[in-house]
Nucleic acid binder design. Structure first.
Length: 668
RNA sequence: GCCGAUGUAGCUCAGUCGGUAGAGCGCGUCCUUGGUAAGGACGAGGUCACCAGUUCAAUCCUGGUCAUCGGCUCCA
């Protein structure tokens, strides 16, 4: 075999074998340098016996892939510790994750914070004991016998394909069904921490056992662990729920209801600026704004298919009072009521979960010709969905939200250009806001599934177009077969929040279904009736969620165009109040969002206030400034600009605002 | 929805092993008239989430409800 080193060199070895033996014989130091290898696109550890012709590429401890190995080992060490302390615990699964690891246990009593400490201490003991990891290949029969008393492992075992080798890993008194990879011994990594206890369903299925999950992380260097923990701490300070309160951007009130956002004046500024921004782009792209109501007849949503199919995630329908009274007198049960509403026997109104049926109706409100297409109808539409109670939180998951929604009705051959336009819009938005850290997910149909509506040829074309469009964005994207909606393929834009949770923002979806359900038509060149295709698209997704993500992205320090207060005027002493008042009036007359802070407080104090409110510009007026007819300019970054006259200041702030600059200082 | 934790002043939190509560910040008034992240004094502010139960007595114990947080699951 040929062993490839990261520096490009290689070592020829006669025959096969485990890398730990080959490297160990070559130079024992190598065993400390490398943690695993890549072999045929798979991670294999140093224990794995490789065949003669193999060409493994060694993975150094410093490699970005290395943590996967030692964190996986840490999860085993944790399981070992848990088994020692809680012999009754049943093991489920315990993988390494992006920045840590976890293990799921079935225990009679949930773990407590104290248990976590004890487990961690036991892990330290195991690490100190420096136990060797051992890889065991066993026959299926042996494996079944070994795992007799481990129901979860049995289930996993039964699902391993016949032709696959079954492996166990052992370290000291602990043995676990595991594919690996693992490091050589438990003493190789010392810097780890258990972070939290959570619950997780076995195999993510809510109908199955609720397991107890322990999360942890580990690093090769103490400083790395400390830096990670510091990062978590920092991230918590950027949490939009915290900043939302500190900066008074929004309010969630128990009495109003969970997941229903009250936007404060400050937050409303941010929202409206975003809306203005996007509306400008929409006008440029030939969209037309429309407005539709918050509720509509059940019949509309039966036709669209939203009701009753998605009934579980909708607010219950509204039924006329007299109707309801008579149903009550009849003694109609809830189940019956639901049934009769679904069938159309009882009519009512639904709080809209989607805007599209309304837009479809606008399309259908007059005869359309191919000359009218594409017809692009846009609306900042408030929709309501009954999200599960355990899911609601902050602005990222709410029950009432505003979509920057639009529906494009077009001919099949117009799809490529329309999708390009949508992507350009998304790109413009992300670029303007400096959000480079997003990924793109293309949901394609599963070729083996028949749930999809529409002509397969149309799908092929739409999928090709989506793929090409995503390519042109120049952003990493993944294709996920089976993730398409039943009515068409889609592109989703996904960003991470400060604690690493992923949130879907924008989405672009091709839809063959709604035009069908509503019998939409246009007259073609040939004078015949044809069916249009629809594109649903919402580059922000939900304005609520988007603002939430944006608060974290900027850590509350919005660029000038979004900042609720753009500049605060600070007179140093009372005798400067009149001058400062003049400056303040001028700023406001110039259309800037300005504030005047002449509170009976020291300048230091008021600067601190402005700083905490993350106001971009502090305009300070004292004796010198009054005399010279200028003002001192302090940025929230702490930097000072040259003192300037009010017109110059107005001009500068306006320019930063109008160009939607991310910086406070003009780029000269 | 499920598992766990939490709920005390506007905010962040302390406290009471059952005898109706405290700090800092913020807020108000006054003094101070200040030069780039906290000047000083005084004062107001709480049905200890809500509803039951146990008890002479519940913010504290028990049960339920609601909400928040960490996860799991779902998301047209």
């Amino acid at each position: 075999m040929e062993i490839l080193f990261p520096d490009g060199s290689s070592h020829q070895h006669e025959g096969g074998g485990a890398l730990k033996d080959i490297l160990g014989a070559l130079d024992r130091k190598l065993l400390r340098q490398f943690v695993a290898a890549r072999h045929q696109d798979e991670m294999v550890d140093l224990h794995t016996v490789l065949p003669a012709g193999a060409r493994p590429e060694l993975i150094a401890w410093e490699s970005p892939d290395a943590p996967l190995v030692y964190r996986h080992s840490l999860s085993h060490i944790m399981a070992q510790a848990v088994k020692r302390l809680f012999p009754a615990a049943q093991l489920a699964i315990g993988p390494a994750t992006e920045d840590g690891f976890y293990y799921d246990f079935d225990v009679p009593e949930p773990f407590t914070a104290d248990d976590l400490q004890r487990i961690e201490a036991e892990m330290k003991r195991i690490v100190k004991q420096n136990q060797r990891f051992e890889r065991l290949e066993v026959s299926r029969q042996e494996a079944l016998e070994m795992m007799e008393d481990a129901p979860y492992k049995m289930e996993l075992l039964r699902e391993i394909p016949e032709n696959e080798i079954i492996t166990f890993y052992r370290d000291g008194d602990f043995i676990d069904l595991c594919r690996g990879p693992h490091m050589l011994n438990t003493g190789q990594i010392r810097h780890f921490k258990l972070l939290s206890i959570a619950a997780a369903y076995w195999r993510g299925d809510e109908n199955r056992t609720m397991l107890q999950r322990i999360y942890g992380t580990g690093f090769t260097q103490r400083q790395e662990l400390e830096a990670y923990l510091r990062r978590l701490e920092e991230a918590r300070k950027r949490d939009h729920r915290l900043l939302g309160r500190q900066l008074q951007l929004f309010h969630l009130d128990d009495q109003v209801g969970p997941g229903l956002v009250l936007w404060t004046p400050n937050g409303t500024v941010v929202r409206q600026e975003l809306q203005t921004f996007i509306m400008g782009e929409l006008v440029r792209q030939g969209y037309q704004q429309v407005v539709t109501p918050h509720i509509g007849k059940l019949d509309l949503f039966r036709t669209s298919g939203h009701f009753p199919y998605y009934q579980d995630s909708q607010f219950p329908p509204v039924i006329q009072r007299e109707h309801l009274t008579s149903l009550a007198q009849e003694g109609v049960s809830c189940a019956e009521l639901t049934q009769r509403m679904a069938e159309g026997d009882i009519e009512g109104f639904l709080l809209k979960p989607m805007n599209c049926p309304f837009h479809v109706k606008l399309y259908a409100s007059q005869p359309r010709s191919y000359r009218d297409l594409p017809l692009r109808l846009a609306e900042f539409g408030a929709v309501y969905r009954w999200e599960q109670s355990g899911e609601i939180g902050g602005l990222t998951r709410v029950r009432g939200f505003t979509q920057d929604d639009a529906h494009i009705f077009c001919m099949e051959e117009q799809l490529p250009a329309e999708l390009d336009g949508c992507l350009e819009l998304v790109n413009t938005i992300f670029r303007t806001l400096g959000m480079q850290d997003y990924r793109v997910r293309i949901g394609l149909r599963d070729p083996h599934d028949s749930k999809y509506v529409g002509d397969p040829q149309h799908w092929d074309r739409a999928e090709t177009v989506l793929r090409q469009a995503a390519h042109s964005l120049g952003v990493p994207f993944v294709e996920e077969p089976g993730e398409a909606a039943f009515y068409g393929p889609k592109i989703d834009f996904v960003v991470k929040d400060v604690v690493g949770r992923e949130w879907q923002l924008g989405t672009i979806q091709v839809d063959y279904s709604l035009p069908e359900r509503f019998g939409l038509e246009y007259t073609g060149k040939d004078g015949q009736a044809h069916r249009p295709v629809m594109v649903h698209r919402a580059p922000f997704g939900s304005l609520e969620r988007f603002v939430g993500v944006l608060i974290e992205h900027f850590a509350g320090a919005f660029p000038v165009w979004l900042a609720p207060v753009q500049a605060v005027v600070l007179p140093i002493a009372d005798r400067h109040a009149e001058y400062a008042g003049g400056v303040y009036d001028r700023l406001r007359a110039a259309g800037l969002r300005a504030a005047l802070n002449d509170d009976n407080q020291t300048l230091n104090y008021r600067i601190r206030q402005a700083q905490r409110e993350k106001i971009p510009y502090m305009l300070i007026c004292g004796d010198r400034e009054v005399e010279e007819g200028r003002m001192a300019i302090r940025l929230r970054t702490g930097e000072n600009l040259e003192p300037a006259q009010v017109e110059e200041v107005v001009e500068m702030i306006r320019r930063q605002r109008d160009t939607r600059a991310l910086e406070l200082k003009p780029q000269s």
